[in-house]
């Protein structure tokens, strides 16, 4: 299972994007992903963006996790 982590796109210069991975700036290649904009979250794998993260879906998962957490705390 390959390590890959979400990062926020801060600026774009051609094929490269400066991204923030939890507070560390990194220059990632965005050659492999289409339509990346500043502010998007992309998955970074070994220096390359490999996918955009769908914000709506990510929020759904986040909410679900929060809900499970609350339930777990109550029980």
């Amino acid at each position: 299972m390959c390590l890959s982590i979400p990062a926020e796109v801060l600026s774009i210069d051609g094929d490269m994007a400066e991204v923030s991975v939890g507070g560390t700036m990194y220059n990632a290649s965005i050659r492999l992903v289409e339509d990346v904009d500043v502010g998007d979250f992309i998955l970074i794998h070994s220096g390359y963006g490999i996918a955009k993260i769908d914000e709506a879906e990510a929020n759904d998962t986040l909410n679900l996790m929060q809900e499970i957490k609350k339930k777990a705390e109550r029980s």
Binding site: L3, I5, V21, G22, G23, T24, Y26
Partner: peptide, 12 residues
């Protein structure tokens, strides 16, 4: 710290 956690995840 959050930034340490993030970089750890990034680098494995």
């Amino acid at each position: 710290a959050e930034n340490t956690r993030g970089l750890c995840e990034f680098l494995g």
